[in-house]
């Protein structure tokens, strides 16, 4: 894996990866099968889906049935990958994912697109700030908040071989480019992006870029902050988290999610028992989403480099 972060946006869209890598997997592995609930067009899968109705099953606007059918396909020996918007792929189908797939030991992958503020113009009704909390509570699950298109591509190629319910939250547009195309990632292993001795920022998803910007700003003031990409929210890389918490003695978490049940919770749970240090968070307060552009919503909910900067200053005072 090679880190190529310079603050610029990736010219490749997440949607481009979904619409090329998934068909490639379907063509190369007869056990993989794709399901959607009338949102194939939203991630560029419509053309492939219409041409290959036995490889890509459009279940109509019926997400609960889609997840149950995916569990049934797993029973028949397939490795299903099902997509819908994050809200539908999480809270609308939670009982089906929990029981038919999780409890029933039928491994499936769910892709929830447009997590948190990346739902933007679809607004509060379509804005999942709770999806990671839900899926973290499902025994044996994997919860990933994807950082950039290169990561998405590699994760898609390995995710179907994992047991349990896998939940991948990923925007459809793009994000800052962090990793070189072709990079390989290990689920359960966080990625240190920047070293620092004064504090560490554990970030995931779109907040990795904000964390890097905050660290840059702080560096100009002589504050030396580490940044770790914690895309693998579950399983959390507890070893790396503890190591950085111990060496810096001050932690800030940053996520595009409610402060309950996501990365802040996971990091706090990991550190509370063995390495208690001051922790601050940047996350959505206990509130619903709303409509607007992504930059507006990031400001509205405090999901910004500026807010991370403030929280680092705050946590340093508690050190």
């Amino acid at each position: 894996m090679k880190i190529v972060y310079d603050g610029s946006m990736d010219t490749v869209l997440f949607k481009d990866i979904l619409s090329t890598t998934i068909p490639e997997l379907l063509e190369n592995n007869p056990d993989i099968i794709y399901l959607d609930a009338d949102l194939m067009s939203c991630i560029g899968m419509y053309k492939y889906g219409m041409a290959h109705p036995d490889r890509a099953i459009n279940c109509g606007i019926a997400e609960a049935n889609m997840v149950g059918v995916a569990a049934g396909l797993a029973l028949a020996g397939f490795k299903p990958i099902a997509h819908s918007f994050g809200i539908f792929a999480s809270r609308r189908v939670y009982d089906q994912a929990f029981l038919s797939a999780g409890y029933g030991q039928n491994p499936i992958t769910l892709i929830g697109s447009d997590p948190g503020v990346t739902a933007a113009y679809n607004g509060g009704t379509h804005m999942p700030f709770e999806d990671m909390a839900l899926y973290r509570a499902l025994p044996g699950s994997t919860v990933l908040d994807i950082t950039d298109p290169a990561m998405l591509d590699n994760i898609l190629r390995q995710i179907s071989d994992r047991p349990g319910v896998k939940y991948i939250r990923v925007p459809r547009k793009t994000a800052a480019k962090v990793y070189k195309s072709g990079s390989e990632f290990e689920i359960g292993q966080a990625i240190p992006l920047r070293n620092g001795k004064d504090a560490v920022i554990f970030a995931c998803g779109i907040m990795v870029h904000e964390a890097m910007q905050a660290a840059k700003e702080l560096a100009q003031e002589g504050v030396d902050v580490a940044v770790v990409d914690c895309f693998t929210v579950k399983p959390l890389d507890e070893k790396t988290v503890k190591q950085y918490a111990k060496t810096t003695g001050a932690v800030v978490t940053a996520e595009n999610h409610n402060k309950f049940g996501g990365l802040f919770s996971a990091v706090s749970e990991a550190l509370a028992l063995s390495c208690p240090v001051p922790i601050e968070y940047v996350a959505v307060e206990d509130s619903f989403g709303e409509v607007g552009t992504q930059p507006y919503l990031q400001e509205r909910f405090g999901l910004t480099a500026k807010n991370i900067y403030k929280k680092v200053k705050k946590v340093l005072e508690r050190k």
């Binding site: 609960a64 049935n65 889609m66 059918v69 569990a71 049934g72 396909l73 028949a76 397939f78 009982d95």
Partner: peptide, 15 residues
């Protein structure tokens, strides 16, 4: 959880 076996059976039949 009622209703869920139906979807699984359908997935099995398709699969």
């Amino acid at each position: 959880s009622l209703g869920q076996g139906a979807s699984q059976a359908l997935g099995l039949a398709i699969g």
